[in-house]
């Protein structure tokens, strides 16, 4: 893990939310941190460059933007794993894809502008791979906000 000084640690821990929507949000943050606006901007740039932060800014809730999303899983025979991964990843609608420890060993998210396209993509992946796609739609979400302490 990247070494963080006390200011950087405070940026990561205290500013995961609550950045005000105003003309000079970094100036407001900087004042609370006891540093200058330019220094804060430089520090955020450094945290991004060192990959301590993946991003600084709004976190959007894709569900509320319209469009369709589906988590799905496939049980891929080990010998075919890389070939199937290439075929699945070739779909532009596949946004994330993870190898996981289970007989259902490939888990991916299909994201489409038009929700009705989701079912077609599932069928096309099945046709391309010859394997069954198990849809795991979200039936309900129990809300939390992910927080990570530095």
């Amino acid at each position: 893990m990247s070494d963080l000084d006390s200011i950087e640690r405070r940026i990561v821990n205290e500013w995961q939310e609550g950045v005000p929507v105003c003309s000079r949000p970094y100036a407001v943050m900087a004042e609370k941190l006891g540093i200058g606006e330019a220094e804060l901007l430089a520090r955020i740039e450094s945290l991004l460059a060192r990959k301590v932060l993946t991003r600084f800014g709004p976190l959007f809730n894709a569900d509320r933007m319209g469009g369709g999303f589906l988590l799905a899983a496939i049980a891929v025979p080990e010998a075919r794993f890389d070939e199937v991964a290439d075929k699945v990843n070739a779909f532009p609608e596949v946004a994330h894809n993870y190898a996981r420890t289970h007989a259902l060993n490939m888990w991916f998210v299909i994201a489409c502008e038009k929700p009705e396209r989701i079912g077609e993509v599932v069928a096309e992946i099945e046709a391309a791979t010859g394997l069954t796609v198990h849809p795991m739609p979200k039936l309900a979400e129990f809300f939390i906000d992910a927080r990570f302490a530095a």
Partner: peptide, 28 residues
């Protein structure tokens, strides 16, 4: 733009605005 951003925060289209840590880099 600021009005729209505030409205998106209120409606939940924006969950929050701030630092998005790379949890791998933080050791998670």
């Amino acid at each position: 733009v600021m009005e729209s951003a505030r409205a998106m925060l209120a409606s939940g289209v924006m969950r929050r605005i701030g630092a998005v840590p790379n949890h791998y880099a933080l050791g998670y």
